[in-house]
Simulated assay, not measured.
Amino acid sequence: MSNAPTPADSPERAEQNPPSVSAEAAAASAPVSGLQPEASETLIETEVSSDTATVRRAPKYGRFMTLGASLGAVVALVLTLSFTPEQSEFVPVGFDGGQVFGFLLLICASIGLALGAIVALAFDRALARRTTSVGVEHEVAHRVDETP
């Protein structure tokens, strides 16, 4: 099924038909059992205009950056656990495992965040080529001011 407007929705047909009046306003303006309509009742007029819009898909940058930072945290954890410091007589170890993980987490999460943003930008550029134009209709309803 396509998004193309049908002949019944075409702008030419909208121009041929006068603006419609809502059923509630028409029923309210008709006299009921010989009573005259009140002055406070209003008619509502609807105007329809057509236009075209460009539609394209875009990636969610926050999700790509969060995924990159998460992968950076996993890499920091793997690096921390894979390289355990050994005590040496010549070089005293100044950092424990938590401190090493913290430093690596800052570095790897920042790099992962940046890489996630770059991947999202690449996807955005690739998806920008596949844009489509669709027809849209805009309806505006407003009161008709009648002067007696």
Rank of each mutant, 00 (worst) to 15 (best):
E47Q: 10
N17T: 14
N17Q: 13
S33I: 08
G34V: 14
Q36Y: 14
T66I: 05
T6N: 07
A128C: 05
P5F: 03
E41P: 01
D51C: 03
T147R: 13
F103M: 09
A30W: 09
V119S: 01
F90K: 11
A114K: 00
I111H: 00
M65Y: 01
P59G: 02
L77H: 04
I118A: 15
T84Q: 09
T80K: 01
H142D: 14
V91T: 11
P19N: 15
E146G: 08
E137P: 03
A28L: 15
D124L: 00
V75G: 02
G72P: 06
H138W: 10
L71V: 07
A117G: 15
T42Y: 12
R63M: 06
T52G: 03
G135V: 06
F95P: 02
R56T: 14
E15H: 07
G112N: 05
S20R: 11
P148W: 05
V119D: 00
E47I: 12
P5C: 02
V75R: 02
A126C: 05
V21K: 10
A58S: 11
G135L: 05
E41C: 02
S110H: 01
H138C: 06
T46M: 05
P37Q: 12
V21F: 13
D9N: 10
T42F: 15
T42H: 12
T132H: 13
L43E: 01
V91Y: 11
I111N: 00
F101N: 01
S10G: 04
M1W: 08
S50T: 08
V75C: 02
A8V: 07
A76Q: 08
E89S: 07
P92T: 13
E12R: 10
A109M: 12
V100N: 11
G98W: 10
F90V: 13
A73R: 00
Q16C: 08
E137D: 12
S50I: 05
R130N: 12
S70G: 12
G116E: 02
D124C: 00
S40C: 11
E139H: 15
R57N: 02
D145Q: 13
S50R: 08
F95R: 12
P59N: 08
A8K: 08
A26R: 13
A23E: 07
E12Y: 03
A69F: 03
A120K: 02
T80F: 00
F90L: 14
Y61F: 14
F64V: 00
P19L: 03
S40A: 09
Q16H: 04
L106S: 12
V140Q: 11
A27C: 02
R129V: 13
A126D: 10
V91E: 14
A27F: 13
V75I: 15
R130M: 06
R125A: 12
A109T: 14
S133W: 04
T52R: 14
P31R: 14
V93A: 11
E45W: 06
A122S: 03
E41G: 04
A69K: 07
I107W: 00
R130I: 01
T84M: 05
A14R: 07
E24Q: 11
A14M: 10
